[in-house]
């Protein structure tokens, strides 16, 4: 069974379009400067509609993680055990991503990670993910 592919909407399309080009972009408010993780039409800090997209450094740290052994849906059963993580990006936003790579099960809170793009499904839709960075 295929893993789910995000279905972008008008708020989120630039994020996913950039991911297809191996780029992570994040929304920043042009008025108050606040970055936000989940893209919106308005700034979640000052409610301004003046938002811009900026290239992310692609680096962050593990804020928390879980090694998942019970899948929410059939599609994820083949992935078990997988690592679900909250990643604090250098820009100051927190993303939910999977830690992938051979050493993923060694993940610890505070680990430095970098964003990689993992193709998914028949059309190779690229999903931002993270790998642990060599120390």
């Amino acid at each position: 069974m295929d893993l789910p592919i995000p279905r972008p909407n008008a708020d989120t399309r630039p994020y996913w379009d950039a991911a297809q080009q191996d780029r992570l972009v994040l929304q920043h408010c042009a008025d108050c400067g606040a970055p936000q993780a989940i893209p919106r039409s308005y700034c979640g800090t000052c409610h301004s509609a003046d938002l811009t997209w900026r290239e992310s450094s692609g680096t962050g740290k593990i804020a928390s993680f879980s090694v998942v052994h019970r899948a929410p849906t059939k599609a994820f059963r083949d992935q078990l055990p997988y690592v679900l993580a909250l990643v604090d990006m250098a820009e100051g936003v927190r993303l939910m991503l999977n830690v992938i790579g051979e050493d993923r099960l060694d993940t610890q809170i505070g680990d430095p990670v970098r964003v990689v793009f993992e193709p998914r499904g028949a059309d190779g839709f690229k999903m931002p993910q993270v790998q642990r960075s060599p120390a």
Partner: peptide, 18 residues
Amino acid sequence: HPEFEQPYGMSVPASYAL
């Protein structure tokens, strides 16, 4: 979140595990 959490295999137990 349908785009930013669920496609990563988020579940309620996994979220509380975080």
